[in-house]
């Protein structure tokens, strides 16, 4: 029996994530939502969602007492960051006048900045395309430039561009997915991205954590 834990730290739409994962999970895979350190330690894989602002997200993570457990999990087992769960993996976010994040991946989180004449709306909300910039097991069976559902006002800028696994264009091109060893993280919401999103979640559940 494979056990996948969706980490609950009071930031995000956990029900949607866990329901979507359950929808595509094999019979021998159990999905649970938890914030217990023991469950995170024992899990075979971790889904790390997140929504809302960076400061409250980091605050909730520390309050829940699971920061260390998350760092450990991110070193050793298949780990999927989603939306804010991707952003807080970085060193630092400019949101809320600056927030120090987990620093598991090198880089920063910055707001969309584009010339006013482009008149682009923020949040970047809706279905946009992800161009796959490296082959990865989580892209298996997902056509390049498939559309995923995004809703965010900040985006990650990895210090090392080889971390980038996918890019999206909104005024400028930004990193929409990162991959590093056993970690894959995506700015879009696979749990809300219809069939393509479900495919990515299924790929994650089948993934052994090697790139």
């Amino acid at each position: 029996m494979k056990h996948v834990v969706v980490v609950d730290y009071g930031s995000g739409n956990l029900r949607s994530v866990s329901k979507a994962a359950e929808h595509v999970a094999a019979a021998d895979t159990r999905i649970s939502v938890s914030r217990r350190i023991q469950d995170i330690h024992d899990a075979d894989a971790i889904i790390f969602p997140g929504q809302g602002a960076a400061r409250s997200c980091m605050h909730n993570l520390i309050e829940a007492g699971i920061e260390k457990a998350i760092r450990q999990a991110a070193l050793e087992k298949p780990f999927l960051g989603i939306c804010m769960g991707m952003q807080v993996l970085m060193d630092y976010s400019e949101e809320n006048n600056g927030v120090h994040c987990l620093g598991i991946l090198p880089g920063e989180v910055t707001p969309f900045r584009f010339p006013a004449h482009l008149k682009l709306k923020v949040p970047h909300m809706g279905w946009n395309q992800i161009a796959q910039t490296q082959a990865h097991p989580l892209w298996h069976g997902i056509e390049d430039n498939s559309r995923f559902y995004f809703v965010h006002s900040y985006h990650v800028q990895p210090a090392d561009h080889t971390l980038t696994a996918g890019i999206t264009d909104y005024g400028h091109s930004f990193t929409a997915a990162v991959a590093h060893n056993n970690i894959f993280a995506i700015q879009a919401h696979p749990e809300k991205s219809g069939d393509m999103g479900l495919k990515l979640l299924k790929n994650f559940l089948n993934w052994n954590g090697t790139p």
Binding site: N13, R15, S16, K19, A20, H23, Y149, V151, H189, E191, K192, S193, G194, G197, L198
Partner: peptide
Amino acid sequence: AEVFIPLTVGGGIRTVEDVRRMLNAGAD
């Protein structure tokens, strides 16, 4: 639980607790 695209819910949302209930139920 069955449809994996964004859901918006309106009508009678008056308190933070109303918002929380809908988001927890699966509204985006």
